[in-house]
């Protein structure tokens, strides 16, 4: 499956919906979207990965790059993910300590609201 991307803004949180495979071929599209969102002043991003079938280190690199960009603006980039196959690569690489990872968009929004 190719990569489908969509985004919407709720309050100050921009939710990025990702569906399909994030790999060396498709990751540049996600990178472009995250850069574009940050350039347009969206500094609090929530990436919903519940419909991601595949994620490799190229995709991880794009997410880390996005995190570095939003942090430069005191922003945040957090994830929604419950799929074990995707969580495993975050654990292997130690990135579970770097990203906030939530079980649902609602849970992330609630946590984000408390941080305001």
């Amino acid at each position: 499956m190719d990569l489908k991307l969509d985004h919407r803004t709720e309050d100050r949180l921009t939710i990025v919906e990702v569906e399909g495979e994030i790999d060396v071929y498709t990751a540049p599209r996600l990178r472009e979207l995250l850069i574009d969102l940050v350039n347009k002043g969206n500094f609090h991003l929530l990436v919903n990965m519940e419909k991601v079938d595949f994620l490799d280190s190229t995709g991880l690199g794009v997410l880390v790059g996005g995190l570095k960009r939003v942090r430069a603006h005191d922003g945040s980039l957090e994830l929604v993910c419950t799929q074990e196959r995707i969580l495993k690569i975050f654990r292997i690489t130690g990135l579970t300590k770097v990203f906030g990872i939530y079980a649902s968009v609602d849970e992330a929004k609630e946590a984000h609201g408390k941080d305001k």
């Binding site: 990178r31 490799d56 690199g61 880390v64 292997i92 130690g94």
Partner: peptide, 25 residues
Amino acid sequence: EQTYELGMLADPFMSSFGIAVIVGL
């Protein structure tokens, strides 16, 4: 090493990161 600090990570990722993933898998 298989774990990294955010400040160490380049964008795009360094290729050795992929090898660390392979070793873990």
